[in-house]
Computed example of a mutant assay.
Amino acid sequence: MKSSHTLTVHAREKQGSRYARRERAAGRLPAVLYGHGAAPMSISLDARQALRYFHAGEKVFTLDVPGETKQQTVILKDLQFDYLGTNVVHVDLARVDLNEEIEANVHLRFVGDALGLKKANTILTHPTVNLHIRCTVATLPDHIDVSIVSLDEGQAIHAREVVLPPGVALLTDADAVVAAISTVKEQVETGEATAVEGQPAQPEVITEKKKEEGADKAEKKG
């Protein structure tokens, strides 16, 4: 964990969707702070500052909470989005101790150019983009790097092969695939053989055959 950033906190006395909209219109992000036996507290954050850290993958912060003399160490527990799933509208923060053991999902960052992608008709897939881990708050990584430089065609990297930082335990299924190089097969459509090379084959004309059969019958009658 890098040194935690301090978030600007404002007290939020009134609750409800109408007041939450007013907070967001004023450039603040509604949030709730809870944990360690204390009563939940409604607060708001500076939206631009907080979202910049959230999008960068930061999870642990320091708060100067109004009415409290001691700074609070908190962890980001949940982000709530609008109905389109694009804008953050509410944040859950939990009080923690730096030596407290927690479980968290950490984003994987894939590093390098895979060897297998230099071959034709190959693609890189990321079936797993986060790892579920257990560690102390102090050792919680912002992300985990995964080198894919030596990953070749037909090969995969599993969760158990990811190098974890010291003090971090893997909770994700060890056999989960985090990256793989696969081959895309080309589908070539082949038509019927042509009668003359370079010219399209002529379809069978059923009506002409029937006319010929009719002419033969007429000659026999005559």
Results as ranks from 00 to 15, higher is better:
N121W: 04
R22F: 01
I102F: 10
V196E: 15
T190L: 13
E13V: 06
H132L: 02
Y34L: 00
L45I: 07
E58T: 07
V162C: 05
D64E: 13
A218I: 15
A193G: 04
S182E: 09
E101I: 13
Y53H: 15
T122A: 03
N130A: 12
E197P: 04
P30S: 07
L76A: 03
V96M: 09
S147K: 09
S42N: 12
L7F: 02
V162E: 09
R48Y: 12
H10T: 13
N99Q: 13
V184Y: 02
T183K: 15
E68Q: 11
F61P: 03
N105K: 15
R134N: 04
K210A: 08
G67Q: 01
L51R: 10
V162Y: 05
A156C: 10
A38L: 03
V106A: 06
E189N: 12
T190A: 09
Q202G: 00
I102H: 09
L29V: 03
L79Y: 02
Q71G: 07
P166W: 03
K221R: 14
T190K: 12
L63P: 02
A26E: 15
T73N: 06
D97Y: 11
P66W: 00
S150F: 07
A47T: 14
T190H: 15
A114I: 03
M1K: 08
M41W: 00
A193F: 14
P141W: 02
A31Q: 07
E58F: 04
V137D: 07
G27Q: 10
I102N: 05
T139N: 14
V205H: 11
N87I: 01
P166D: 15
V65Q: 01
D175N: 13
T62D: 05
Y34H: 01
T183R: 14
T125W: 11
L171Q: 08
A215N: 12
E161W: 02
E197K: 11
P40R: 00
A11S: 08
Q72K: 10
Q72G: 01
Y83V: 06
L51M: 15
D82T: 01
H10P: 00
D92C: 06
Q199V: 11
A193V: 15
E58H: 12
P203V: 08
L45R: 11
A193T: 15
Q187T: 15
T190D: 03
H126S: 09
A50Y: 02
V32E: 05
G37E: 00
T6P: 01
V60N: 02
L108F: 03
N121D: 14
A39T: 06
H55V: 03
I102S: 04
T139D: 15
V168I: 08
A11G: 08
L151F: 11
E100D: 10
V91T: 09
G85A: 05
I148K: 06
T122Y: 09
G27C: 08
V137L: 06
Y53L: 11
S3P: 15
N87Q: 09
T86R: 14
V65I: 02
P166C: 01
I144C: 04
K118L: 06
R134G: 04
V163F: 03
R18I: 09
T73Q: 12
Y34D: 01
T136R: 14
A176W: 04
L117E: 05
I181E: 03
L51T: 11
L51I: 14
G16F: 02
Q72R: 14
V111P: 04
H132N: 09
E153D: 11
K209D: 13
